[in-house]
Protein backbone atom coordinates (compact mmCIF):
# COMPACT_ATOMS: atom_id res chain seq x y z
CA UNK A 1 0.00 0.00 0.00
CA UNK A 2 1.27 3.42 -0.87
CA UNK A 3 0.90 6.30 1.55
CA UNK A 4 -2.13 8.57 1.59
CA UNK A 5 0.19 11.43 0.63
CA UNK A 6 1.14 9.71 -2.62
CA UNK A 7 -2.50 9.04 -3.47
CA UNK A 8 -3.37 12.64 -2.67
CA UNK A 9 -0.53 13.95 -4.83
CA UNK A 10 -1.69 11.85 -7.81
CA UNK A 11 -5.29 12.95 -7.28
CA UNK A 12 -4.22 16.58 -7.22
CA UNK A 13 -2.20 16.10 -10.39
CA UNK A 14 -5.12 14.36 -12.10
CA UNK A 15 -7.31 17.31 -11.25
CA UNK A 16 -4.67 19.69 -12.60
CA UNK A 17 -4.53 17.67 -15.83
CA UNK A 18 -8.30 17.97 -16.24
CA UNK A 19 -8.11 21.74 -15.74
CA UNK A 20 -5.41 21.93 -18.42
CA UNK A 21 -7.49 19.78 -20.79
CA UNK A 22 -10.52 22.06 -20.42
CA UNK A 23 -8.36 25.18 -20.78
CA UNK A 24 -6.57 23.84 -23.85
CA UNK A 25 -9.87 23.45 -25.65
CA UNK A 26 -11.15 26.68 -24.12
CA UNK A 27 -13.59 28.68 -26.19
CA UNK A 28 -11.93 28.62 -29.57
CA UNK A 29 -10.90 25.03 -30.20
CA UNK A 30 -12.31 21.61 -30.84
CA UNK A 31 -10.68 18.88 -28.77
CA UNK A 32 -10.88 15.37 -27.41
CA UNK A 33 -12.34 16.26 -24.04
CA UNK A 34 -13.99 12.90 -23.38
CA UNK A 35 -11.16 10.46 -24.03
CA UNK A 36 -8.55 12.75 -22.49
CA UNK A 37 -10.52 13.02 -19.25
CA UNK A 38 -11.28 9.31 -19.05
CA UNK A 39 -7.61 8.38 -18.69
CA UNK A 40 -6.44 11.44 -16.71
CA UNK A 41 -6.14 9.52 -13.42
CA UNK A 42 -4.13 6.76 -15.08
CA UNK A 43 -1.82 9.21 -16.83
CA UNK A 44 -1.33 11.12 -13.58
CA UNK A 45 -0.46 7.91 -11.72
CA UNK A 46 2.09 7.01 -14.39
CA UNK A 47 3.85 10.38 -14.58
CA UNK A 48 3.64 11.38 -10.92
CA UNK A 49 3.95 8.03 -9.18
CA UNK A 50 5.07 5.12 -11.28
CA UNK A 51 7.43 6.04 -14.08
CA UNK A 52 11.12 6.74 -13.87
CA UNK A 53 11.40 9.94 -15.87
CA UNK A 54 13.30 13.20 -15.85
CA UNK A 55 11.56 16.23 -17.36
CA UNK A 56 14.92 17.99 -17.61
CA UNK A 57 16.37 15.05 -19.54
CA UNK A 58 13.55 13.59 -21.64
CA UNK A 59 15.93 11.11 -23.30
CA UNK A 60 17.29 9.75 -20.00
CA UNK A 61 18.37 6.21 -21.02
CA UNK A 62 16.98 4.63 -17.84
CA UNK A 63 13.56 6.22 -18.21
CA UNK A 64 10.34 4.25 -18.42
CA UNK A 65 8.47 4.82 -21.68
CA UNK A 66 4.90 5.93 -22.10
CA UNK A 67 2.94 5.61 -25.33
CA UNK A 68 -0.53 6.88 -25.97
CA UNK A 69 -1.78 4.46 -28.59
CA UNK A 70 -5.11 6.33 -28.50
CA UNK A 71 -3.19 9.36 -29.67
CA UNK A 72 -6.29 11.53 -30.05
CA UNK A 73 -6.22 11.91 -26.26
CA UNK A 74 -2.96 13.86 -26.65
CA UNK A 75 -4.33 16.70 -24.50
CA UNK A 76 -3.98 14.62 -21.35
CA UNK A 77 -0.38 13.76 -22.14
CA UNK A 78 0.45 17.37 -22.99
CA UNK A 79 -1.07 18.39 -19.67
CA UNK A 80 1.04 15.81 -17.83
CA UNK A 81 4.24 16.78 -19.63
CA UNK A 82 3.69 20.46 -18.90
CA UNK A 83 2.73 19.78 -15.30
CA UNK A 84 5.87 17.65 -14.87
CA UNK A 85 8.03 20.39 -16.38
CA UNK A 86 9.01 18.98 -19.78
CA UNK A 87 8.11 22.35 -21.29
CA UNK A 88 6.52 25.60 -20.09
CA UNK A 89 2.78 25.50 -19.42
CA UNK A 90 2.38 28.48 -21.80
CA UNK A 91 2.81 25.98 -24.66
CA UNK A 92 -0.54 24.44 -23.73
CA UNK A 93 -2.34 27.57 -24.91
CA UNK A 94 -0.90 27.13 -28.39
CA UNK A 95 -1.98 23.51 -28.81
CA UNK A 96 -2.94 22.60 -32.38
CA UNK A 97 -2.05 26.07 -33.69
CA UNK A 98 0.15 26.59 -36.74
CA UNK A 99 3.77 26.18 -35.74
CA UNK A 100 2.90 24.84 -32.28
CA UNK A 101 5.02 22.25 -30.51
CA UNK A 102 1.82 20.50 -29.47
CA UNK A 103 0.19 18.86 -32.48
CA UNK A 104 -3.25 17.33 -32.81
CA UNK A 105 -1.70 13.93 -32.20
CA UNK A 106 1.56 13.11 -30.36
CA UNK A 107 4.62 14.02 -32.41
CA UNK A 108 8.01 12.98 -31.04
CA UNK A 109 9.78 15.24 -33.52
CA UNK A 110 8.18 18.34 -32.01
CA UNK A 111 7.40 17.66 -28.37
CA UNK A 112 9.87 16.72 -25.62
CA UNK A 113 8.71 13.65 -23.73
CA UNK A 114 6.73 12.12 -26.58
CA UNK A 115 8.19 8.71 -27.37
CA UNK A 116 6.52 7.91 -30.71
CA UNK A 117 4.13 9.32 -33.28
CA UNK A 118 0.83 7.65 -32.54
CA UNK A 119 -2.76 8.31 -33.42
CA UNK A 120 -3.35 6.05 -36.37
CA UNK A 121 -5.18 3.67 -34.09
CA UNK A 122 -4.12 0.13 -33.37
CA UNK A 123 -0.38 0.62 -33.64
CA UNK A 124 0.79 1.63 -30.17
CA UNK A 125 0.95 -1.84 -28.67
CA UNK A 126 3.18 -3.03 -31.50
CA UNK A 127 5.48 -0.05 -31.06
CA UNK A 128 5.55 -0.70 -27.31
CA UNK A 129 6.50 -4.33 -27.96
CA UNK A 130 9.37 -3.19 -30.17
CA UNK A 131 10.69 -0.80 -27.53
CA UNK A 132 10.32 -3.49 -24.86
CA UNK A 133 12.18 -6.06 -26.98
CA UNK A 134 14.93 -3.53 -27.68
CA UNK A 135 15.29 -2.73 -23.97
CA UNK A 136 15.44 -6.45 -23.20
CA UNK A 137 18.19 -7.02 -25.78
CA UNK A 138 20.20 -4.33 -24.03
CA UNK A 139 19.37 -5.82 -20.62
CA UNK A 140 17.85 -2.58 -19.44
CA UNK A 141 15.16 -2.73 -16.79
CA UNK A 142 13.02 0.18 -17.97
CA UNK A 143 9.34 -0.55 -18.49
CA UNK A 144 7.01 0.43 -21.29
CA UNK A 145 3.47 1.62 -20.59
CA UNK A 146 0.89 1.98 -23.33
CA UNK A 147 -2.69 3.21 -23.08
CA UNK A 148 -5.14 1.76 -25.59
CA UNK A 149 -8.77 2.74 -26.09
CA UNK A 150 -11.53 0.15 -25.95
CA UNK A 151 -12.86 1.36 -29.31
CA UNK A 152 -9.35 0.93 -30.64
CA UNK A 153 -9.55 -2.78 -29.82
CA UNK A 154 -11.46 -3.17 -33.09
CA UNK A 155 -8.16 -2.67 -34.93
CA UNK A 156 -6.80 -6.05 -35.98
CA UNK A 157 -3.22 -5.02 -35.38
CA UNK A 158 -3.91 -4.80 -31.63
CA UNK A 159 -4.46 -8.55 -31.63
CA UNK A 160 -1.43 -9.24 -33.78
CA UNK A 161 0.51 -7.29 -31.18
CA UNK A 162 -1.24 -9.03 -28.29
CA UNK A 163 -0.13 -12.38 -29.72
CA UNK A 164 3.39 -11.04 -30.19
CA UNK A 165 3.63 -9.80 -26.59
CA UNK A 166 2.83 -13.23 -25.23
CA UNK A 167 4.81 -15.09 -27.92
CA UNK A 168 7.93 -13.15 -26.94
CA UNK A 169 7.03 -13.22 -23.22
CA UNK A 170 7.28 -9.44 -23.03
CA UNK A 171 7.00 -8.79 -19.29
CA UNK A 172 8.62 -5.34 -19.30
CA UNK A 173 5.47 -3.89 -20.86
CA UNK A 174 2.14 -2.97 -19.31
CA UNK A 175 -0.86 -2.21 -21.50
CA UNK A 176 -3.75 -0.26 -20.04
CA UNK A 177 -7.16 -0.32 -21.69
CA UNK A 178 -9.04 2.92 -21.05
CA UNK A 179 -12.44 1.27 -21.09
CA UNK A 180 -14.78 4.24 -21.39
CA UNK A 181 -17.23 2.23 -23.53
CA UNK A 182 -17.75 4.98 -26.10
CA UNK A 183 -16.26 5.56 -29.51
CA UNK A 184 -16.62 8.62 -31.74
CA UNK A 185 -20.17 7.92 -32.81
CA UNK A 186 -21.64 6.33 -29.70
CA UNK A 187 -21.69 3.23 -27.52
CA UNK A 188 -19.16 0.58 -28.52
CA UNK A 189 -21.54 -2.22 -27.52
CA UNK A 190 -24.17 -0.87 -29.94
CA UNK A 191 -21.82 -0.25 -32.83
CA UNK A 192 -18.93 -2.62 -33.25
CA UNK A 193 -18.75 -4.59 -30.06
CA UNK A 194 -15.19 -5.14 -28.85
CA UNK A 195 -16.46 -6.78 -25.66
CA UNK A 196 -15.67 -8.92 -23.76
CA UNK A 197 -12.16 -7.66 -23.16
CA UNK A 198 -10.72 -9.66 -20.28
CA UNK A 199 -11.35 -13.15 -21.73
CA UNK A 200 -9.84 -12.06 -25.04
CA UNK A 201 -6.58 -10.95 -23.45
CA UNK A 202 -6.52 -14.05 -21.24
CA UNK A 203 -6.95 -16.23 -24.30
CA UNK A 204 -4.06 -14.37 -25.89
CA UNK A 205 -1.83 -15.32 -22.97
CA UNK A 206 -1.95 -12.13 -20.92
CA UNK A 207 -2.16 -11.49 -17.21
CA UNK A 208 -5.24 -9.29 -16.75
CA UNK A 209 -5.95 -6.91 -13.86
CA UNK A 210 -9.37 -5.23 -13.75
CA UNK A 211 -9.70 -1.92 -11.92
CA UNK A 212 -11.76 1.22 -11.51
CA UNK A 213 -9.78 3.59 -13.68
CA UNK A 214 -10.72 6.61 -11.57
CA UNK A 215 -9.70 5.13 -8.23
CA UNK A 216 -6.11 6.26 -7.80
CA UNK A 217 -5.38 3.70 -5.09
CA UNK A 218 -6.51 0.90 -7.37
CA UNK A 219 -4.51 2.28 -10.31
CA UNK A 220 -1.36 2.47 -8.22
CA UNK A 221 -1.87 -1.00 -6.78
CA UNK A 222 -2.38 -2.46 -10.26
CA UNK A 223 0.73 -0.78 -11.66
CA UNK A 224 2.77 -2.13 -8.75
CA UNK A 225 1.27 -5.59 -9.03
CA UNK A 226 2.17 -5.71 -12.73
CA UNK A 227 5.85 -5.52 -11.73
CA UNK A 228 5.57 -8.89 -10.03
CA UNK A 229 4.33 -10.74 -13.12
CA UNK A 230 7.15 -12.45 -15.00
CA UNK A 231 7.14 -14.38 -18.26
CA UNK A 232 3.93 -12.88 -19.64
CA UNK A 233 2.58 -9.45 -20.47
CA UNK A 234 0.12 -7.64 -18.21
CA UNK A 235 -2.90 -5.62 -19.24
CA UNK A 236 -4.82 -3.42 -16.84
CA UNK A 237 -8.42 -3.14 -17.95
CA UNK A 238 -9.52 0.14 -16.42
CA UNK A 239 -13.24 0.89 -16.21
CA UNK A 240 -13.58 4.58 -16.94
CA UNK A 241 -16.13 7.23 -17.81
CA UNK A 242 -15.66 9.31 -20.93
CA UNK A 243 -15.50 12.98 -19.92
CA UNK A 244 -15.13 12.04 -16.24
CA UNK A 245 -15.93 14.85 -13.74
CA UNK A 246 -17.20 17.20 -16.44
CA UNK A 247 -20.94 16.93 -16.00
CA UNK A 248 -22.19 17.61 -19.52
CA UNK A 249 -19.44 15.52 -21.13
CA UNK A 250 -19.70 12.41 -18.98
CA UNK A 251 -20.75 9.42 -21.09
CA UNK A 252 -21.52 11.81 -23.93
CA UNK A 253 -20.08 10.78 -27.29
CA UNK A 254 -20.59 14.32 -28.58
CA UNK A 255 -17.54 15.27 -26.53
CA UNK A 256 -15.34 12.60 -28.09
CA UNK A 257 -14.06 15.56 -30.07
CA UNK A 258 -16.03 18.70 -29.56
CA UNK A 259 -16.10 22.41 -28.87
CA UNK A 260 -17.55 23.97 -25.72
CA UNK A 261 -19.96 26.87 -25.51
CA UNK A 262 -18.98 29.62 -23.04
CA UNK A 263 -21.59 28.19 -20.64
CA UNK A 264 -20.15 24.69 -20.97
CA UNK A 265 -16.65 25.99 -20.34
CA UNK A 266 -17.84 27.71 -17.14
CA UNK A 267 -19.64 24.55 -16.08
CA UNK A 268 -16.57 22.41 -16.73
CA UNK A 269 -14.37 24.71 -14.64
CA UNK A 270 -16.94 24.77 -11.82
CA UNK A 271 -17.26 20.98 -11.93
CA UNK A 272 -13.52 20.67 -11.50
CA UNK A 273 -13.34 23.41 -8.84
CA UNK A 274 -15.88 21.49 -6.78
CA UNK A 275 -13.48 18.52 -6.68
CA UNK A 276 -10.87 20.52 -4.76
CA UNK A 277 -9.86 18.74 -1.60
Amino acid sequence: MVSKDVVKLVEEKALALRHHIVDMIGLSKVGHLGGSSSCADIVAALYFYKMKNDPKNPKLPERDRFLLSKGHAALVQYAALAEAGYFPKEELKKVKELGAMLQGHPDMTKTPGIEANTGSLGQGLSIANGIALGLRLDQKDSKVYVIIGDGELAEGQIWEAAMASSNFKVDNLVAIVDRNRLQATGAIADRFNTNPITPKFEAFGWNVIEIDGHDVEEIIAALDKADEVKGKPTVIVAETVKGKYISFAENNAAFHNGAMTPEQYETAKKDLESLKV
Binding site: S126, I127, G130, G134, L135
Partner: peptide, 23 residues
Protein backbone atom coordinates in the same frame (compact mmCIF):
# COMPACT_ATOMS: atom_id res chain seq x y z
CA UNK B 1 16.08 -12.31 -35.28
CA UNK B 2 12.36 -11.95 -34.68
CA UNK B 3 9.99 -14.25 -36.51
CA UNK B 4 6.88 -12.07 -36.35
CA UNK B 5 4.51 -14.55 -37.96
CA UNK B 6 2.26 -13.76 -40.87
CA UNK B 7 1.45 -10.32 -39.50
CA UNK B 8 3.23 -7.63 -41.50
CA UNK B 9 1.54 -4.64 -39.88
CA UNK B 10 2.60 -5.67 -36.40
CA UNK B 11 6.09 -6.47 -37.70
CA UNK B 12 6.42 -2.98 -39.12
CA UNK B 13 5.29 -1.11 -36.01
CA UNK B 14 7.41 -3.42 -33.82
CA UNK B 15 10.40 -2.43 -35.93
CA UNK B 16 9.50 1.20 -35.26
CA UNK B 17 9.69 0.43 -31.54
CA UNK B 18 13.01 -1.36 -31.90
CA UNK B 19 14.38 1.67 -33.75
CA UNK B 20 13.13 3.89 -30.92
CA UNK B 21 15.13 1.67 -28.55
CA UNK B 22 18.27 2.33 -30.60
CA UNK B 23 18.27 -0.75 -32.81
Amino acid sequence: YFEMGIAEQNMTSTAAGLALAGK
